[in-house]
Structures are given as structure tokens and as C-alpha cells.
Simulated assay, not measured.
Amino acid sequence: MSRAARSGWFIAGLALLVALCAASVSLGVRDVSFGDIVAALSGQADTVGEAAVVKRLPRTVLAILVGAALALSGAALQAITRNPLADPGILGISAGSSFFVVLGITLFQLSRPYSVMGVAIAGAAVAAVLVYLIGSAGRGGATPLKLALSGAAMSAALVSLTSAAILPRVDAAQSFQSWQVGGVGGGTWDRIATVAPVLAVGALICFVCARGMNSLALGDDLAVGLGEHVGRTRALAGVGAVVLCGAATAIAGPIGFVGLIIPHLCRLLFGPDHRWLLPFSALAGASLLVAADVVGRVVARPDEIQVGIITAIIGAPVFIWIVRRQRVREL
């Protein structure tokens, strides 16, 4: 695909995201008019409709940030592992982040946002390293199937440990359980201001490594022959992926499958060049999470379905399709 065609598709994607954002602030328990949206954006909150728009704006922005972060994290993990099944949720990285957050809050009474994000990123890093070490053991090294199985086992163990840590705290169990499902309903401007700089750092690291990710796709030997420092590129891209996943999990809970679905879709449509794949993944990931949030509010109103459930419903069939497409005997 030519540069002009990709640029055109990117502009179309931005237009779609804008349309989804308009739907996000206008649809919910109470639908609002275009006039309410314009008035709310100008700073008014006098009517019920305008107040509803003001309340929905931060959750829409949070959905954009979290969706983009998870998609970038998944794209980076797939690049550095050359694993089509790599995803923060499938590899147990989100579960590690969640477990450390729960431990930090229940055992050490952490409450400051940056402290919570710090332990979330640390948990994501520990889980990523453990899964890679386990998946690399034995003959054949870190194959996609071994990494997926290791991640599934790690995720199951960490989810059980997280539940065990939550159960004694009856007073906080309900809020923890809601957070564990994954959602953006608790978005506020203060929380966004806290997490946005951390996500920006993680995204910047991934974008800086885009050219190196292209070299990794050719294989380690050829990448070294082209002058690429394979170990450094993998480490930097891994740090970016872990920071993005950890910060996103800390603010919105563990939301699965975004990092699996979006990079695959963008790679099929726009090619494997990470200089384009990463921006497209961020844009598509943001669009998916905003759309999932809208669907969750519309189909169950006056209640709502958390975005983590919507993405799981979408992602599970896609995961099965990817496994079949890659032919399990070759994984």
C-alpha cells in the first residue's frame, strides 16, 4: 500500500474516532442532543443533558488513552517475540499488574496514583519476565504455543492469588471486583492527568523502536547483519510495552484482547511496517475501546456492561481464528 493510501486511511480512521467520541458523549442512560454537546464543550452544565455530556467526556478520553496503550503494547509484544499470540492478557502481563496493584493496596495501603501505577508496572514486568523464561525452557526455545500456554498458566495462578488477596477485605471486595473486570466508567480529569504522561512515555519508547521492530521481524541473525542491536531493541520495546500495559491496567483494570485483535487487523490491512503499524494500532485500539464502551452502555441501559466484557466477547473468537490460521502444528 502506498504512503498516500495509508495517509488517507489514517485520516478516515481519525474521522471514525471522532464520530465514535460523539456517540460516546451523546448515548447512555439519557441520550443528549447536539446542542447539549456544543453547550457542554463550551463550559456550560446547566441542563441535565449538558451535565451528562460533562460527565461522559473524561470516560471517553480515558477509553481513547487506554485503548491506544493496550493496542501499542500488543503490537510491541508481537514484534519482539515474533509471536502472533502475544497480548498483555494472554501472556499474563495484565494479571501480574493486577496482582501487584491488589497487594499494594491491601498490604501496604497504597493510595497515591503514581504509587499504584508504579507497582502495576512492576507487576507487569515481573510477569513478563517469568512467562518468557518459562516459555523459553526446553527444546525449541520460546515458541508461540509455549509462550501462550505459559501465559495462560501464569494468568490463572495470578488471578487466583488476586482473588485470595481480595476476599478477606469484604469492605473493598465489590470495588475491586468491578475494577478486575476492566472498565473506563471511573474516568476523571484528575486520573487522566496522572496517567497520560506515563502512557506518553511508554508510547514514545515504542515509536522510537519502530524501525528496530522491523528488523526483528526478519530474524535475529539477519537483524544483526543489518546492524541492529537485537538485545537492546527487545529490551527497550519490552519496557515500552510493560509501561503501557501496567499504567493502563492500574487506571482501568485488566482489559483483554485489545492488544491481540488490533495489531493483527492493522497488519492485515496496512502491512507489517511498524512505522505505520504502531500509529494505526493506537488509532484502532482507541476506536475499539470507545465503541465497546458505547455498546456496553446502550445494550444494557439503564445499567451498563463493562468494556472488559465486551472486548472478551469480541476477542475470544478472534483468538481461536488466529490459532487456526497459524496452524497449531506449526506453533
Results as ranks from 00 to 15, higher is better:
F99H: 01
A173N: 09
S160H: 08
V131R: 14
V198W: 11
I93M: 08
A124I: 00
P197Y: 13
G185W: 12
A127H: 00
S163N: 15
G104L: 04
G104V: 09
P168L: 03
L103S: 03
A148N: 14
A124D: 02
V184P: 11
T188I: 11
G140C: 06
L110A: 03
A137T: 03
I121H: 02
M154H: 05
G185Y: 06
R191E: 14
A148K: 11
V116C: 04
F176Y: 11
G138Q: 10
S98M: 04
A156G: 14
S94V: 02
G141N: 06
S94A: 10
L145K: 12
R191N: 08
R169D: 14
S155R: 14
A193H: 04
G138A: 04
V159Y: 07
S160W: 08
G151M: 11
V198P: 09
A153R: 14
G92M: 03
I134V: 13
T106P: 08
P144D: 06
L130A: 05
I105F: 05
G104R: 04
I105Q: 08
P197N: 02
P197W: 13
I134A: 11
A157K: 12
G187P: 14
G151L: 09
A142S: 09
I166R: 13
A152E: 14
V129C: 09
A124V: 00
I134H: 02
P197E: 01
G185M: 13
S160R: 06
L161V: 02
S160T: 15
A196E: 04
G182W: 10
G123W: 09
P168Q: 08
T143K: 15
V102M: 10
L161A: 12
M117V: 02
L149A: 04
W179R: 03
V116H: 00
P144R: 13
A165G: 04
Y132D: 00
L130N: 01
A193W: 11
V159P: 06
A157P: 15
G92Y: 06
T143L: 05
I134D: 00
T188W: 09
I192Q: 03
Q180Y: 08
V159E: 12
A128V: 05
V129N: 08
Y132G: 00
A157V: 13
V129K: 12
W179E: 13
R169T: 10
P197V: 05
L91N: 03
T143F: 06
S150R: 02
K146I: 00
F176R: 10
A120V: 00
A153M: 15
V116Y: 07
V102A: 15
L107Y: 11
G182L: 08
G92D: 02
S178H: 14
A172K: 14
F99Y: 05
S175V: 07
P197F: 09
I134M: 07
A128D: 05
A164V: 10
L158S: 00
P144E: 12
L167M: 11
S175H: 10
G151N: 11
A156R: 10
A127M: 02
R139I: 00
S155H: 14
L133Q: 06
